[in-house]
Write a protein that binds this DNA or RNA. Structure first.
Lengths: 120, 120
DNA sequence: CCAACCTTACCGCGATCGTGTCAAGGTTCC
DNA sequence: GGAACCTTGACACGATCGCGGTAAGGTTGG
């Protein structure tokens, strides 16, 4: 059982979640672990790290799991993401006042944010 | 009172929301109307259209107002958006297996989605 | 083989979401 | 000045969220 993977209780202790919550997080589709032949959840270093960073993210920004679940939907359902983007972008009265160049720049700034966050 | 702006009851009838919900939507920061000197809410064609498209968006994709509120937070708090982006992007075991070129392409596809949504 | 794990599936429970409704008071208009 | 609006604030209420617990049963290891 100790082949570089922790059981749910062990993973719970090192990550600060409860076993109950690890199953809940999995049910949201946020972090799923491998399974032993008998169906036991096995958490590798990868998942443990992700669980810790998720925890930090949540109480650093006062975000809930349901909200992260929605963020996940936004990445999995491009139609939804496009619809939401379009609705928020639909604020300027004349869309031609703010043509492609501007939101392109906005998106590039988003890339910049991503880069900065990734390099920390 | 009929200077191209509807009262909350009139706006409610033409948009399919209830007056109560219009105030609720406003409290989420999603759509705020102008106010008359006495503080009455006045909805112009702009807001009416936004209310209708919001309604369509919600029941087309089974999204709640709270989730749209979160989407709004993502646009208003770049730190939060960056943290969420970074967490989801942190899936590949070796980040160098999927270097800049790849998520750049992903982001460009996102732009494409946005464009398509905007042109409909 | 038995204690100590694990699994899924429930019940509960305070908090929030999405609504309606009602109260107490100000505004508009004829 | 009174009917018909509007305002904010509260109470209510079913549904979901975030979490703990328990039950019923399978797995593991000394």
């Amino acid at each position: 059982m100790s082949v570089d993977a922790l059981t749910i209780h062990e993973a719970a202790e090192t990550t600060g979640w409860s076993p109950r919550m690890l199953r809940y997080v999995e049910s949201m589709g946020l972090i799923q672990s491998k399974r032993s032949p008998a169906g036991y959840r096995l958490y590798g270093p990868e998942e443990l790290q992700r669980l810790r960073t998720l925890r930090e993210l949540l109480n650093a920004h006062d975000v809930g799991l349901a909200e992260m679940g929605f963020a996940l939907r936004l990445r999995r359902e491009p139609e939804l993401a496009a619809a939401v983007d379009a609705w928020f972008e639909a604020k300027p009265k004349r869309p031609d006042d703010v043509p492609a160049a501007d939101w392109l720049r906005f998106e590039q700034e988003k890339h910049q944010r991503l880069l900065e966050a990734a390099l920390s």
